[in-house]
Design a protein around this nucleic acid. Structure first.
Lengths: 123, 123
DNA sequence: ATTTGTGCAAATCCTTTGCAGATAA
DNA sequence: TTATCTGCAAAGGATTTGCACAAAT
């Protein structure tokens, strides 16, 4: 994989943002740093990174568009119904699937984050 | 929601199949039972059922197309890397997200099912 | 009769791809 | 040099929608 300005920019965005942007959001952000970049390059680069296992692709709650996450370890995503933010959450739990070989786990959790839960009780 | 032949057929398919079919697979199956049915009716009906909470939509491992499941309780999906089958799995685990209000959980697990794991050891 | 549902075709949204020119090694 | 990467525009796949007709209440 050659080092190009486009790939540097995409990697930098993924490393700095932890809000799980879509390909289009990454493209919009990248244009500020490198205006000539194209949307297809963003898609191509993300696809390659996913295939290499450097980035994971998530789709919360049946969304048609994918979001990207440079955190490749097994972890859960929590989306707040109120503010829409997506939090990374580490969950340790005992998987006892007798005879099954578990290679990857994706967990999506929906509800209210601590701040919004407080507000709802008050309202 | 009026009772039409189309909706009866779609419900019957969802109730009988537990292999998490896509909209197109439901359409193909439905045509055997009611040839005049259209793909857009299948999509429209599924979307309505999802909005009513009668059916859930899942997208395993970044698949672009949705799959449908009449089992609406919180449960995990296990996809076998080898045979591709998707198993429903009940997992009880303690969620301790302090201050967070959990309303829904989606868990996707990937690996080898018991049968395929045995074969891999032997091979 | 009135409201809701349907099929069809066209539109839309997200993503991928072919190609000819550009760039990193 | 030369293999890989890029932008563009066009194609592709999944899903949604406008509309006039059909069916359910």
């Amino acid at each position: 994989m050659r080092i190009t300005k486009q790939r540097e920019v995409i990697l930098k965005i993924l490393a700095e943002r932890r809000d799980h942007p879509t390909a289009f959001e990454i493209y919009e952000h990248a244009k500020n740093l490198f205006p000539e970049i194209s949307l297809s390059t963003v898609y191509r680069t993300l696809k390659e990174m996913v295939e290499r296992g450097e980035v994971i692709e998530i789709r919360m709650d049946g969304e048609t568009k994918a979001r990207y996450d440079i955190n490749t370890g097994n972890h859960a995503h929590f989306r707040c119904r109120n503010c829409g933010r997506i939090f990374d959450i580490e969950i340790l739990f005992p998987l006892k699937l007798i005879g099954f070989k578990v290679e990857k786990v994706e967990i999506y959790i929906y509800g209210l984050c601590d701040e919004c839960a407080k507000k709802e009780v008050m309202a």
